[in-house]
Design a protein around this nucleic acid. Sequence first.
DNA 1: TTTTTACTTTAAAATCGTTCTAAACTACTT
DNA 2: AAGTAGTTTAGAACGATTTTAAAGTAAAAA
Lengths: 132, 132
Amino acid sequence: MNNKEKLRKAGLRPTKQRMIIADILLDGIDRHFTAENLQNEINSSGNSMSIATIYNCLKKFRNCGLIKQVESSKDTAIFDTNINQHHHFLDEETGELIDIENDEVNLHKLPKIPQGYLNNGVEVLIKIKKQI
Amino acid sequence: MNNKEKLRKAGLRPTKQRMIIADILLDGIDRHFTAENLQNEINSSGNSMSIATIYNCLKKFRNCGLIKQVESSKDTAIFDTNINQHHHFLDEETGELIDIENDEVNLHKLPKIPQGYLNNGVEVLIKIKKQI
DNA sequence: TTTTTACTTTAAAATCGTTCTAAACTACTT
DNA sequence: AAGTAGTTTAGAACGATTTTAAAGTAAAAA
């Protein structure tokens, strides 16, 4: 399926700007990035785009499940093109994130989901620090 | 051990402001809160404090291990008085966090920590959403 | 096709959480 | 009691993100 079709399937109009972003992000390569990272990539690709549009797109893409946002208490939002359930190592010093595939973690026992709620995804974060 | 001793033991001078905060936070009750929540509690207790001091204190308390900061991609930093390793349910709609005790989760298999790094804590986040 | 409608993009301003600044203050040491 | 190192403060500054409102564009209707 090409990117235009992916956008339509997600219920998003394939505008020029969304196509530029889709062409960068939806190439099947797993990566972590910020809005600013993406703007730099857009610029390097010979295009340009308002930062407001970049934020709009990232929010829409995230809400449609085309990308994910990583849970992390950094000051800048980090997005992830790997939309499968998976986990992360986090170096809190540098903010570096490293993917952990889902089958690398085995959750043997999970608590009961609170009454009235549904499980909407499990994320394991392993905080790591550089050995001295 | 009283709060004055706790602060000294953590290497922090027990100033008037830190004692006010310690008296609110270090009462053994587990709670999640933001800087703004804490300022409201300080105000309700008949005291007042600059927001800069509140942030300073929270950062110091966190760095000394008196409190923890929760990993979450919300726009506001969330702190936790429960400093034991534990986990959370997160309702992404409302931002509500619910504690999960460490023994409620059983991680049967963990990936190898990357070369040159040490494990610095594991956090499991179970995202939940309201049933419709 | 043309027209209409709803959605999208944009630059710039606004907002919000957090940090910085530098002066006044306070706890601890001598 | 005096010195010094750390702390608090109001307010300014900052950086990420969102809002605004006007101009532009895609899809639907005529």
